[in-house]
Design a protein around this nucleic acid. Sequence first.
DNA 1: AGTTGTCAAGCTAGT
DNA 2: ACTAGCTTGACAACT
Length: 300
Amino acid sequence: MRIGYPCINTSLKNPNSSTFRLKSYSEKRFNETVKNNLDHLLRILHFNKKNNIFFFRLSSDIIPFASHQICQLNWKKKFETELNEIGNFILKNNMRVSMHPDQFVILNSSNEKVVENSIKELDYHSNLLQNMNLLNDAKIQIHVGGVYGDKNASKNKFINRYTKIHECLKSRLVIENDDRSYSLKDCLDINKETGIPIVFDVFHHECLNDYEFFKDALTSFSKTWNYSSDGNPIVDYSSQSIGDRRGKHAKTLDYTHFVFYYKELERFSSEKSVDFDIMLEIKDKEYSVIRTLNLIKFGS
DNA sequence: AGTTGTCAAGCTAGT
DNA sequence: ACTAGCTTGACAACT
């Protein structure tokens, strides 16, 4: 079971800008920023290795404006060396990475322009992972999208759009249950039609579920993964930030809450011979991962 | 140096 | 009607 964190490492300082405004776009700025981001990513991966962290979510901002018209540079070619080096490091160390495109990626949107932009953005994510020569276990996770007042119609829209995307992207794309619109059960309905694997977010599942037993949820979601090609089923973990609005992530690890889920996963794992990878969506990032690794190793 | 308004992109629920 | 929140605040202009 690998445990990881998303996008940012709070221990390492990034001395340069990681992105810029569209207004500030220039080839020079672009090249400097991408170079800096890739160098920094490699530093994070080294940090992770040193701390026995083998799962990490790559920021979508590594190549700024990659899917925007303004970006006409062949960054895959220009940064081939860096991309290869990062990919080799990940593969050599049996690491896994994933990505989570932001909220503007809506495959089931009723606006064709939004869909078009979404596919461009997904292509960028797919190209980035592809150019690092990563395995198909490097997933791109998105939410199902909007409801638009008719969930069934919107689910079907997702299914139709998904069937039309190209195989390379398909081999990486996965959906995640969200906390307000599409529950695990909704995702399973979509999986039945498409075969798309499901990332199971346990916190979202607390917020929105269909009263299923937790064990049944684990069984059904893990079955959507073809372990040999997709890798271990991914679980997203976070907990409620106390006193804040429902769905807001906690700033630091809720020890008891995490242990409950970890033990459930561990038990399921040994019974069914399924291994999971857990993504900790906690504001203090690698610090919480290191705490959980110590907890598992030393039991305290 | 520190503060603050704004940033490519969508959608939902809460106020 | 407006805003917080979302996987992650951070850039850039201003004081």
